[in-house]
Nucleic acid binder design. Structure first.
Lengths: 195, 195
DNA sequence: CCGAGCGGAGAACGAACGTTCTCCAACGCG
DNA sequence: CGCGTTGGAGAACGTTCGTTCTCCGCTCGG
């Protein structure tokens, strides 16, 4: 019985992993409404029954999808940024990281912004997740700005550059906005002393 | 007969106006997929038959909706900006205009970005309209930057600030990003001479 | 007054989709 | 070996929605 239960548990874990992997790609690539649960089933290889046992409704799956996006994105960013030592260099590294992200072949913008446009008006879950994600990124920027001995309001301006670069890169399908945002950030940094 | 035909034509024009007015509000407020043709009919008061004679498919209506958004937005912006005389003041006025826009009670971000997130992956019409719109705005910024004797690359940076401000304001439901973007733009402007 | 055609109200149709249900095979336990 | 539970395949159900069709009243020329 216990052995049996454990066997089920392990399967459930790998099943959940596969479902989330499918959602991670499909939802990002085509949006939530354009991907049916049946396609999640087909891609993950997890039967509908199991799928609904793991995620009793599509919205639950969307929640987990967004949580995973948030985690992976921020982990990737911090890992990249913290490979640099100098605080100023770290601030600029954020934009280098953006350039790498934008250059990925399947880059399609920020999953949160996309979903906000798709469901933001009707789904509190999406609104909250989006705000939490942006807030978390901004919080990290705040720390970097403080570490670089820059005024706190620089955070706001850098956040706008990051946001604008992501959106512009998505729309035009080019990584250039990362470079432009980095240049703008560098100017804002080097001229801070004037105040 | 001719009188009758003209009567129909006039009705068709006002019907089209009413349909577009309904689409203008409903699509912006809730997205395209969340608004059915029947709701367009109910709000506009135009019967389904007429509606489909004017716009043979929903996608045609979406096209016209986006065209109207583009026209009104740019007209509103240029009207506001050109109330100022000095070239530098005009550049900053773009961000004041943003602040007014963000403060409208039903502001919900950029209609193009929202629809890009919703349908961008599957609808070339939306992709093209979005790029054309952003390109047109950028073109206008280019003119303002040139008139202010600023280097051409400043356009890229200002465009990112505009884009980031719109998105951030939509997500957090505040007009503050316009102020922050304006401050950043002012810094980028006043330090241009250093190069 | 009459017939023809336009237009409106809303039913109808077909597809897509979220969710549930049915049927059946496999498997561990007595 | 039966038995009860688990899980898979996929049919089924109910709803939504884009689009079309049906029916009916109105208007307008004769």
């Amino acid at each position: 019985m216990v052995l049996h239960a454990r066997g089920v548990a392990v399967d459930a874990q790998t099943a959940e992993t596969r479902v989330l992997a499918a959602a991670y790609e499909l939802f990002y690539e085509r949006g939530v409404q354009a991907v049916g649960m049946d396609e999640i089933r087909a891609t993950s290889g997890v039967s509908l029954k199991r799928l609904y046992k793991l995620f009793p409704a599509k919205e639950r799956l969307v929640e987990s999808y967004l949580r995973q996006r948030d985690e992976r994105l921020r982990e990737s960013m911090t890992r990249y940024v913290e490979a640099h030592e100098s605080p100023e260099r770290r601030l600029l590294a954020v934009f280098d990281w953006l350039h790498e992200w934008f250059s990925e072949p399947d880059f399609r913008g920020c999953a949160f912004i996309n979903m906000f446009g798709e469901l933001g008006s009707t789904s509190p879950v999406v609104i909250d997740a989006t705000r939490a994600h942006k807030e978390a990124v901004r919080q990290y920027l705040t720390e970097l700005v403080a570490a670089a001995d820059q005024p706190a309001w620089l955070t706001d301006q850098l956040a706008l550059l990051v946001e604008g670069a992501i959106t512009t890169a998505a729309i035009f399908g080019t990584a250039e906005p990362a470079r432009q945002a980095r240049a703008a950030a560098a100017r804002l940094l080097t001229t801070t002393r004037n105040d």
